[in-house]
Nucleic acid binder design. Structure first.
Lengths: 288, 288
DNA sequence: TGCATGATGAAAATATTTTTCTTAGATATA
DNA sequence: TATATCTAAGAAAAATATTTTCATCATGCA
């Protein structure tokens, strides 16, 4: 439910006509997906120009794409009855397991639906051509950044990962236009990561953001934007589902990268795998 | 699956160009839904006129409506996890995305199925009563261990995480019978983690393993065993699905822990959340 | 009050899609 | 075999839909 969610959230910061449009969208999304932009303009009391701009605000290149995304969201909503579950006290373990599983599954499918293949391709190309790759993330997003780091060095990329704010800036300030900086933050409002990515952009580096869907500072400042599902609310659940979604995006990025340049990267991947096997096989394994 | 089915069925009675179009549709439906009619004409070797007529044959008033229906169908199709897919060279991005998503979904559902609630309860009790918790994991499993560490310190647990083999042993040798050591390894054959967990057991600590399902050295040496799905094979896919599964287990462990002792842990969780909010809100946020 | 900013729609420009018209090849018939 | 008829299929025209540009108007601020 990322698009409708994002609209709901942004409601307050929308202008007069945009809000009228947003309200109409939230009220009758099913109908909107089969309307033309002119019809929608008429019925929502706005103009085609406003709608076209509105779609871009919500990360769709054009109105048809917006409708497409909205449509898939609506289908999912009706076909998968399991909403995101909140975790409450004293549930039997089985219920907890079921709830967490449902949340994670939902998070992955939602994120997949949101994925913009054009941005993905841009990201893959940027990573492929980068002479250095910097990864920034704090707390849980730092875990995701580290995971990405592990992957990238396995294929011989000159990558580095920073969760320390000062080091983030130190590294960012030495980037050049040949480099790529990746900022990871679920909210997209982590100040340290925002600063680091902004600094990287000022050095001319290509900037890539991985944030939740919707308008946020980190994505706004990035040249390539990838999004995760944004339905997660409340703090009890923590950031588990969002971390799953971020890792999902990282996996897709990585496999996309490897797959597009198979001959170059797969041997390296294989080599790193074999090397570890070689060096650790000296150790005795208890056969049992 | 009515549209694609209907096309499949009607295949024989279609004319030359219509058939070319139909074949293209069956092969790359995901891509078709985001094409314009002109693009589709070019790529399928037919013309826009033919496509427009084709859509009417299949009960759509026009091309956009056809795309809408097709898209809806495809969403429903992808949300059902199928087989584990291997990642191969030069696949179109859409296929890669679909394959990875399917793998991850599969990995989570399989792991949930495998979960032994008795072992889970034992693990939760052990963690709850532990005066110290040590987490051991190398490489990708180290990422998972760190993630667990972040969670545990948020609820005020005396936890520590080690990916460095010497430090693992150093810490393990100072554990007592009141402590818990958690060893994470997908294969269950990572020598460093095995040694550390064995050392912890020798000090009388409760040992918990998180490994792939099946017989393996790490689990054999642990007093509580949790398993993840073990279907992942081959190295091309790396350890992505297994990492997802491990995190899934960690999440369940954590939420189980918090939920069973709600009054004790939730305030701490809340406090950690609020504190971060307080200290980072001083920073200026660019409003848009 | 005057200036700047920005939201907004009208209209122009562009793009997409459908329909019409034409052609070429197939099939049937004398 | 020659001719007529039919139809698949594309080119191009027409219709429709969408985006962009530009002018206007309102609002906030000095």
């Amino acid at each position: 439910m990322s698009i409708l969610n994002a609209i709901q959230e942004k409601m307050n910061s929308l202008h007069l006509k945009e809000r009228a449009l947003a309200e109409f969208l939230l009220e009758k999304p099913q109908q909107v997906v089969q309307m033309t932009i002119t019809e929608l303009a008429g019925q929502s009391g706005s103009s085609t120009a406003t709608i076209s701009r509105f779609c871009k605000t919500f990360h769709s290149q054009n109105f048809p794409e917006f409708k497409r995304k909205l449509a898939t969201e609506l289908v999912q909503q009706t076909s998968t009855p399991n909403q995101y579950q909140d975790i409450v006290a004293g549930n039997p373990l089985q219920d907890i397991v079921t709830a967490i599983t449902a949340n994670h599954l939902r998070s992955l499918t939602d994120t997949t639906q949101l994925l913009d293949l054009n941005q993905l391709r841009l990201a893959i190309d940027a990573l492929h051509n980068a002479s250095r790759i910097d990864l920034y993330g704090i707390a849980t997003s730092g875990i995701v950044a580290q995971d990405f780091f592990h992957k990238l060095i396995r294929i011989g990329k000159a990558a580095a990962v920073f969760s320390d704010p000062h080091l983030q800036l130190t590294s960012a300030s030495s980037l050049t236009s040949k480099d790529v900086a990746v900022g990871i933050s679920y909210s997209g409002e982590t100040p340290e990561t925002i600063h680091a990515l902004r600094c990287a952009a000022e050095q001319g580096a290509t900037t890539l953001s991985i944030t939740r869907f919707g308008t946020n500072t980190l994505a706004d400042g990035a040249s390539i934007r990838l999004f995760t599902s944004s339905a997660e609310v409340g703090m009890r659940r923590g950031d588990m589902a969002s971390r799953m979604a971020q890792l999902h995006v990282v996996d897709i990025l990585f496999i996309g990268l490897v797959s597009e340049h198979f001959e170059q990267y797969v041997p390296r991947l294989e080599a790193s795998f074999q090397t570890i096997k070689l060096y650790t096989s000296k150790e005795e394994r208890k056969p049992r």
